[in-house]
Simulated assay, not measured.
Amino acid sequence: MSKILVIAEHLNGKLNPSTARAVSAATAIKAETIDVLVLSDKVDAIAKEAAKIQGISRVFTVERAENAHPLASMLAPQIAKAAANYSHVFVPSTTFGKDVAPRAAALLGVAQISDVMSAEGSHTFKRPIYAGNAIITVEADPSQTVVATIRTASWPTAADNANSAPIEALDLDVALPTHTRFVELKQGKSDRPDLQSASRVVSGGRGVGSKENFEIIYKFADKIGAAVGASRAAVDAGYVPNELQVGQTGKIIAPELYIAIGISGAIQHLTGIKDAGTIVAINKDAEAPIFEVADIGLVGDLFKLIPELEQAIG
């Protein structure tokens, strides 16, 4: 039977929802055991959050000063050591997961499986290739530990359980490297919902026209309580910072509602929203590719349509 270790992603003492999505992937395999590993310098609050996720057996914690920041060089040796008795190690396919999982896989001497979007069996998975234009089936060697990043947009968030799973401190005898040190973390600060976990997202593209004009996107997003995203064209043009980029080379998201404003719909962008619930497109070009995937399309000037929508919302 499969025993799966899910690596918890967290920041500033809070568990990222991506962890619960990785647990959903583990649950799909019908594993005998699903444990969560929390690596931090202060584990208590994070571990208590993780313990509420439905489907997990235990939460293991490793509290060390070196775990204050998510440095892959520090975390990977601990993950590899903790994974000794597990058949699978699952990590969210986020910036965090894409950083740490390859190092952990290398230390375990196995090849990593990226962006798992479905499980056909305990060692058979499906993942996207060619910018999402094709889906490939990958079969892992049952004799080796499976290290996989989980495409969070393809999995639901595991529900909270009424009873919390037991929490146990783990003592890992592993030497950590000394050649890496944390300097600082630079990230955009916003009161808006997180782009990767928001249920509603409003994105703007090149059609918005300028950084100043992008205020109409921010205003509309705030009106409906949505996160803000952007196409690569808008990011490259300097309208918004790159952490807002949605698409193949940006963030892969799956909100319940996605509103694309002034976005033509290049395949790289569509890859990032293929799992969205309802897609609404606003573009003055009736032939824009975005309309081929949109559930609702509005053809017209965004600077006229958005104020009308805001007025209709009230």
Rank of each mutant, 00 (worst) to 15 (best):
M1W: 04
V6T: 01
E9S: 07
G13E: 06
S18Y: 04
R21V: 01
A28V: 07
I29M: 14
I29K: 06
K30S: 10
L39N: 02
V43W: 07
A51L: 08
I56R: 08
S57C: 06
V59M: 12
E63D: 06
E63M: 12
P77L: 14
K81D: 11
A83L: 02
H88T: 01
F90L: 07
K98A: 06
K98Y: 09
L107P: 13
Q112L: 14
S118Y: 01
A119P: 07
F125M: 11
R127V: 11
G132A: 03
A134G: 09
I136S: 09
A148V: 06
I150P: 08
R151A: 13
A153E: 14
A153G: 12
A159W: 01
S164N: 15
L172P: 06
L172W: 05
T180Y: 08
F182K: 06
Q187S: 15
Q187D: 08
S199M: 08
G204T: 13
A221F: 01
G229K: 06
A230Q: 04
A234I: 10
L244Y: 15
I263P: 08
Q268E: 04
G272C: 00
D275E: 12
A276R: 03
V280P: 00
A281Y: 02
D285G: 05
I290K: 05
E292F: 04
I296C: 13
G300I: 06
D301T: 04
L302Q: 08
E308S: 01
A312T: 12
A312V: 08
I313Q: 09
